[in-house]
Amino acid sequence: MKQAIELVCPAGAMPALRAAVDHGADAVYVGLRGPTNARNFPGLNFDAHTLPAAIDYAHRRGTRLFVALNTYPSPEQWTACTAVIDAAAACAADALIVADMGLMGYACERHPDLPLHLSVQGSATSYEALNFYHEHFGIRRAVLPRVLSLAQVRHVIEQARPEIEVFGFGSLCVMVEGRCTLSSWATGQSPNSCGVCSPAHAVRWEEGADGRRARLNGVLIDRFGAADKAGYPVVCKGRYEVNGQTIYALEEPTSLSTLDILPELLNTGVRALKVEGRQRSPAYVAQVTRVLRAALDALHADPQRFAVRPEWSRELGRVAEGQTHTLGALHRSWQ
């Protein structure tokens, strides 16, 4: 019998945290306010004062709580980041999700009992890379970038010492996480440096005779006719002209859903399934957590006879960005 897959859900603030815990998350991940995590949206995130209450709520119901600290701090952000590590350790958070090697070193030295998870922003895509972080910083778990095929995930798990968490549902990053500066190229701010992708202050919507135009710091990312659903202007999801054709040159707006391949993920030894979306509403968190809890429970009860129930797909489809499902890179054949 393979080890059960843990369900790890996002919480941008206390209502979403309650939603995740109450609907069956095994663990919840949160960020602390400021430029120290990759979901640095206004109105979100906990701080050192609200973190203890969050941990208390989770722990009383048997849910673990992870603190995400997944940006790469510049020297002036350093102290804010180490304060987050100190706060996470002081509140007995169940893990710190971290990307920066300097911060890993700090956590190892000051708080050797605080378990460390390698953030997806750490861009570790091979077992050699994962074992490097394990050997030097005691990384216990790593979140894989959304770029590997299922066969590659299996190969990584066979050789990697940290346990493996994969993204199970949410917006699909087409780039290798931690290796994309398209946002700062256009706006000056990126996930690595500021914890934001396509910051809201750089977005401008223009209404014209030919429809709506979405700009990012002046750059036309896309234009939409009356019938089009206008998506948030992220560089990788725009429509551009390449070789004389106007196409989604990088990525179509779609969501990742691994519902269909849960038995394969269990079989490969994936230890945890992560839901993306600390910026999403408590209702989204509740819905996705509820569906994935039901799916994982069915999977664990009888892996051989697991079948996706139509209502699960329907419910997830309703909250998915671009309203489509894809397995992302996971369905790619070997190499």
Partner: peptide, 22 residues
């Protein structure tokens, strides 16, 4: 790591002196 000298490429994320020291 531990070998006789290497270059940290631009795609290794080093944003502060602590990471550089490591």
């Amino acid at each position: 790591a531990g070998k006789n000298g290497f270059v940290i490429g631009a795609h290794i994320n080093v944003y502060n002196a602590h990471s550089l020291a490591v």
